[in-house]
Design a protein around this nucleic acid. Structure first.
Lengths: 184, 184
DNA sequence: ATTTTTATTGAACAATATGTTCAGTAACGA
DNA sequence: TCGTTACTGAACATATTGTTCAATAAAAAT
């Protein structure tokens, strides 16, 4: 990608992220994004069709990164069972979040956290779907697999929500413990 | 309240609900609402400051109604333990939803279901908070009460979401069973 | 080093949406 | 019947959106 194009794109993402951490998505205007990113109006529209697509691409950048890195871990963990915690895919996710790369936490703590948690959950469902059998969870036979996968993903997301709403005072390890207490 | 005022208010709610079941909240304009409700522009703004407040008041009308009715049930159930299912506060909620009063289901099935489920969850948290001790759920001592309440409410909401996404093929009784399988 | 390709700019543009104002009219309640 | 309250519809200023275009500058290719 052309360097100029990459710089514009990054400037838009940075400006948009900062605005999102301060005010509501629906109240953010394209004009504001342009102003903060310090680019021309036509440039913005040459990159993103609408504000919604911008959000979508931002989420993909943020979360694909997380899931890719945990999937690598997941693959090793799946086979190496002498690891400290066999369930640590989730621990890794919590740790990853608490490191606050790409200012994810600022976004998850903002008024717009629903927007991000929704995207996050979709990725989680895929991850859990593909690894459900490796989890040490007793699966009631009467329960649709589908339902259980959704439940685990949703519980994880809600745990994250609770965590950030409580200013993230707990360690990733403790949060992981809470998570498994309600899942098992 | 003046009959004219009540009629305008109802017309706005009806028009707004219908629009919400068809298209995205952010894409609905005040102009459209006015047109469908068949009222003057100034009338709309004499009732609701913004589209967001309109949504808020609509949610309150919808859900206060549900919670009020289940709280009455809850109070009786709390003391009458020869009832078929002592946990039936949740069964009642599922049944109430499936009756589709006020077209709640249309709204919960729409693209905007997040908006409503968010409001719904807030009411649920209050309900569960006040009745947690009456539930037959073993409470791990290490878990903050706060966390558990949020988890139960979130699980209920996610169960509803799963249900409506799957076209509500299951009976309220079966859904209640799924719910308790993952909660207990 | 020169040429070609590509991206950005800024301004102008029409189209749409927002929220307010006001005088006239109709419905309400007492 | 009379005073009050609500609705109307049009007009209004303002803000936002998304597009267009010619000029300019940076990057890539030769």
């Amino acid at each position: 990608m052309d360097r100029r194009r990459r710089k514009s794109r990054e400037a838009i993402f940075a400006a948009f992220s900062e605005l999102l951490s301060k005010k509501n998505f629906s109240q953010i205007t394209v004009g504001e994004i342009i102003e903060h990113a310090d680019i021309g109006r036509a440039t913005f529209y040459s990159h993103f069709e609408t504000k919604d697509y911008l959000l979508k691409e931002l989420c993909e950048e943020l979360f694909c990164h997380i899931f890719d890195s945990t999937k690598e871990h997941g693959h090793t963990h799946r086979h190496i069972f002498d690891c400290d915690a066999p369930d640590s895919v989730f621990l890794h996710l919590f740790q990853h979040l608490s490191r606050n790369d790409n200012h994810i936490l600022d976004l998850l703590s903002s008024q717009n956290n629903d927007l991000f948690l929704r995207y996050f959950k979709v990725g989680l469902v895929d991850l859990i779907e593909s690894q459900l059998e490796t989890f040490e969870i007793r699966i009631p036979a009467e329960l649709p697999r589908n339902f259980l996968v959704n439940h685990i993903a949703a519980t994880f997301v809600e745990t994250v929500r609770w965590w950030v709403e409580n200013k993230m005072q707990e360690s990733p390890e403790l949060i992981t413990k809470y998570f498994f207490l309600v899942i098992h």
